[in-house]
């Protein structure tokens, strides 16, 4: 038990610090890397909650794909001038104040409402250990939530289409094949029959 608690506190401290790093670093590259670190610590914490599959997914999808995309965009854009200026301004104390209020409120709510949580106080072996977390999730996903799953897939497809269509750029002066024009061509415009008088000699 104590070991788990130690792990929890260590990782949660890292999570809070890296989260602060995301918003406090001047350089967005540092921010992104800090965010990656916070995802990894989150994944570790999710392992504590026996959500092994999601922890792996978080690292694979988020760290491996999304955050790389972030870094890619950050580095692609020429934002060197942004880096130098401080991100702090006169509204920062107010933001801190609001943030603290929200934290205070949420924590108050969590602790005064704790009696309303229908939770078991000893969450040992919540889910059947003989069946793996992945199996359990997959079973639920492909039976009860099949339609949602399909919709999720469709959303991803949509995201692909949108991203491509938004960022696609046609440059002037490029020579490329236009299939539709080739197919729809009118033969009479291509070929001209000319009567030529044969010369008599």
């Amino acid at each position: 038990m104590a070991f788990i608690e130690i792990i929890f506190y260590v990782f949660s401290s890292i999570l809070v610090l890296t989260s602060l790093g995301v918003i406090l670093f001047k350089n967005p590259v540092y921010s992104a890397i800090s965010l990656i670190l916070s995802f990894i610590t989150s994944a570790a914490l999710w392992l504590l909650l026996q959500a092994e599959f999601l922890a792996i997914v978080l690292i694979l999808v988020y760290v491996g794909a999304v955050m790389v995309l972030f870094l890619f965009v950050v580095m692609m854009l020429n934002i060197s001038d942004v880096i130098r200026t401080s991100r702090f301004n006169k509204i920062a104390p107010f933001a801190l104040f609001i943030g603290l209020i929200i934290v205070g409120e949420l924590i108050t709510l969590i602790w005064i409402r704790s009696d309303q949580f229908s939770m078991t106080s000893s969450p040992i072996s919540v889910l059947d250990t003989s069946v793996g977390n992945t199996t359990l999730l997959g079973t639920a996903l492909f039976t009860d939530y099949l339609y949602s799953f399909e919709i999720a897939g469709f959303i991803l497809l949509l995201a692909i289409v949108v991203s491509i269509s938004l960022t696609l750029r046609r440059r002037e002066g490029l020579k490329r094949q236009i299939v539709s024009e080739q197919v729809n061509i009118d033969p009479t415009k291509r070929m001209k029959l000319v009567d030529l008088k044969s010369e008599k000699n």
Partner: peptide, 23 residues
């Protein structure tokens, strides 16, 4: 954008405050 976001957050905090006061 951050002004609108700020308004949203203030609204959120007020909502939370109302929930707390109610309970």
């Amino acid at each position: 954008i951050y002004h609108y976001a700020l308004m949203m957050v203030i609204g959120l905090s007020l909502l939370l405050a109302w929930v707390i006061i109610k309970s």
